[in-house]
Design a protein around this nucleic acid. Structure first.
Lengths: 228, 228
DNA sequence: GGATCGCAAACTGTTGACAACAGACATTTG
DNA sequence: CAAATGTCTGTTGTCAACAGTTTGCGATCC
C-alpha cells in the first residue's frame, strides 16, 4: 500500500462546513448582494438541512464580518460603506507590501515564470474584452505574493480582508480607468521580482495599489461617487 | 422630555456571547493554556448552560483562530509555534505602522496628554517592579494608535492579531531585555506625535517593534529558545 | 509475552421542539 | 384624525435527544 494517506480529505467535511462554503461563495460572487436577509429556516429548507448547521455557518460568516447579526433578528449580508472600503484599501496596501517584501526572496524560477504567465494572460484577456477573466487573473497575481510570503498569519488576514473587499473590487477596477496601465505596472513588478529587488517591488506594488485608492478618494471628495 | 433615549442598552447579550467572552478571557489570560482540550459537555455543565451556546462560542473562537477544531474531535486551545509567532510580529509591524501613520493627524490634545500619562505610569510601574501593570499599559499604548486611526477594518484585524499574540507577549517582553529602553522609545514616539510628524513616529514605532522581533530571531537561530 | 481484534464508553454532529422576543398590523381612545 | 395600545405572526435563542464516529481498554490469539 503506498503512503498516499490524506491527499484528498475524503469529503469528510461536516454539514455546516458545506453550508458555510456555499454561502461564502454566494456572497463573494455577489449572488447574495449586500443587505440580503439570511433567515435560518428558509435557508435550511432550501439547502435540505436543519437549522443547526445553517446557524453555525452564519455564525462563522459573522465572525468573518461577511454578515452582521442583530440579536433576535435575522442576519443580513454586510454592507461596506465607501469610507470603510477606502479604509480597507489602506490595510490591503500594508498587508500586500509586507507580503511582497517577504515573498521576493522566496520566489522560485517557476514562480517567476508563473508571474509572467499571469500578466501575459491578463493582456490576452483584455484583448478579448474578457473583464471577468482579467479580474480573476488580477486576484491571482496579488494572491501569489501572499502565498509565497510563507507567513500563515498574514495569509489568514489577507484572506479575510479580500473576503470583505472582493465583492466591491469589480467597481474599484472600473474606477481604475485604464487596465493597460495596470498591466504595465504588473510587468514592472514582475521585473523587480526577477532582479530580486524586494524594495523596488514593494515600492511599485504600493503605488500600484494606490492608484484606485486615490481615484476613490477623489470620487469621494467630489461627491459624485457611485452612491448606493 | 429630553432625548436621553438609549443611554444603556439593558445588557441584552445572548448566552453564547457571554460564554464566548468568558472563554476568550480565559484563553487570553492564559488561564486556559495552549493545548487544553475544550469538550463541549463538561464546559456546558460547568457554566450551567446547554451545549448549544458553548458550541456557538467555540465556533467563534475557532473562526478567530484561538482554538482549533478537528472534526469529530474536541477543540483544543491553539498553539502558536515560535515561527508563527515571529511571522505574526511581522504582520503586527505592518498594521501598527499603518495605524500610527493614520492616527497622528487625528490625535487631539487630550490624546497626546493621555499618551504621556501612559508612559509616565509605565515608568512608575517599572519602579515598583509591577510587570503585569507595565504590560497592560504597554498594550494600552499601542492600542491607542489603532483606536485613533479611525479605521474600522484595521481595528478588527489588530484585535484578532493581538488575540493570537497576546498570550505569548509576556514572554517576548521578557526577551526584550531592558524595559527602560522600551519606555525611552515610547517617549520618543510620544514626542514625534506632539510635533505631528507621522513619518518620524512611524519610523520610531517600526524600530520599537523590531527590537523583540530581532531578539526572537536571534534566539531562534541559536536554538537556545525557550522551547515550549 | 506481544500484538491484534473487538467491544464499550464518551464525545461530537445533527435534528426537532419549545419559549421568548421583535416588528407589524389592527383597534381603540383622546 | 392622530397617537397609543394590544394582539399576532414570524423568527431567533436555547434545550434535550438521537445517531454516528472515534478512542481507549481488555480479551484473545499467535
Amino acid at each position: 500500500m503506498n503512503a498516499s494517506a490524506a491527499v484528498a480529505p475524503v469529503e469528510n467535511v461536516t454539514l455546516w462546513e458545506r453550508v458555510y462554503a456555499h454561502l461564502r461563495e454566494q456572497i463573494l460572487s455577489n449572488a447574495l448582494s449586500p443587505g440580503t436577509v439570511l433567515s435560518e429556516v428558509p435557508l435550511a429548507v432550501s439547502l435540505g438541512v436543519s437549522r443547526g448547521p445553517v446557524r453555525e455557518a452564519i455564525g462563522r460568516l459573522a465572525a468573518e464580518g461577511l454578515v452582521t447579526v442583530r440579536p433576535r433578528r435575522s442576519a443580513i449580508v454586510s454592507t461596506l460603506s465607501q469610507e470603510e472600503f477606502l479604509q480597507a484599501y489602506q490595510v490591503r496596501e500594508a498587508l500586500e507590501t509586507l507580503a511582497i517584501r517577504l515573498a521576493v526572496p522566496n520566489l522560485s524560477d517557476e514562480d517567476l515564470d508563473r508571474i509572467d504567465d499571469i500578466v501575459t494572460r491578463q493582456a490576452e484577456a483584455v484583448e478579448r474584452d474578457d473583464i471577468a477573466r482579467f479580474f480573476a487573473l488580477n486576484s491571482e497575481f496579488h494572491q501569489l505574493f501572499v502565498d509565497q510570503s510563507h507567513n500563515a498569519p498574514l495569509q489568514d488576514m489577507y484572506r479575510q480582508l479580500i473576503g470583505h473587499m472582493g465583492r466591491y473590487l469589480m467597481r474599484s477596477l472600473a474606477l481604475r480607468g485604464t487596465v493597460r496601465r495596470s498591466i504595465a505596472e504588473h510587468r514592472a513588478i514582475a521585473r523587480a521580482c526577477r532582479t530580486r529587488d524586494p524594495e523596488r517591488a514593494e515600492r511599485l506594488l504600493r503605488n500600484h495599489i494606490r492608484v484606485p485608492q486615490r481615484r476613490l478618494e477623489a470620487a469621494n471628495n467630489e461627491e459624485v461617487l457611485l452612491k448606493r
